[in-house]
């Protein structure tokens, strides 16, 4: 139906757009407590930028920047940040994810500590969502086998 070719327009546009998308995703994560958005939405946008790079530039380019192993690592780090902050609150004699107790180690007043704790949790959620979304897309599009393994098998 369509001849596959070098679609230079899509390639160049996404090349220029991807850094701005990533920065916008980080903005959504960081400003989650002022404006709409937060960890999950920012993570989805960050994953979408990786998906865009994968679609337009192919496997090799993305693998150079953000390989599947790093994706797995990032998803673990995200969960670690989230649960780490939660258990830190437990250790400081509060409830799980009771951010206001964090003022004991952050040397700020409890309201500010709550804001910072929410920010930390959102960063963790963002990392985890980004990595999991990207690795789901990666597995679906490559059928669970990375092209490098296929080349070696052939």
């Amino acid at each position: 139906m369509i001849i596959r070719g070098e679609d230079i327009i899509i390639k160049t546009i996404s090349r220029v757009l991807v850094p701005f998308i990533q920065l916008y995703a980080l903005y959504v994560i960081m400003h989650g407590h002022y404006s709409p958005g937060g960890g999950f939405q920012g993570g989805v946008i960050l994953g979408a930028s990786m998906v865009l790079l994968f679609i337009t530039h192919g496997y090799a380019e993305v693998n150079r920047k953000f390989s599947e192993n790093i994706a797995v690592l990032f998803s673990s780090i995200g969960v670690l940040i989230y649960s780490g902050i939660g258990f830190l609150c437990l250790l400081l004699l509060g409830n799980y994810l009771d951010y206001s107790k964090l003022y004991k180690i952050l040397s700020v007043d409890p309201a500010h500590a709550r804001s910072l704790g929410i920010l930390g949790v959102e960063i963790g959620v963002g990392f985890a969502v980004m990595a999991v979304m990207f690795s789901i897309f990666f597995d679906i599009s490559t059928g669970g086998v990375s092209p490098d393994d296929e080349e070696e098998a052939e």
Binding site: R15, V16, V18, P19, L23, L26
Partner: peptide, 17 residues
Amino acid sequence: LGVVCSFVVALLGHDLL
């Protein structure tokens, strides 16, 4: 926060732009 985020993104994508 902006400096840190721009630094990370620029580190990842300085060859893209």
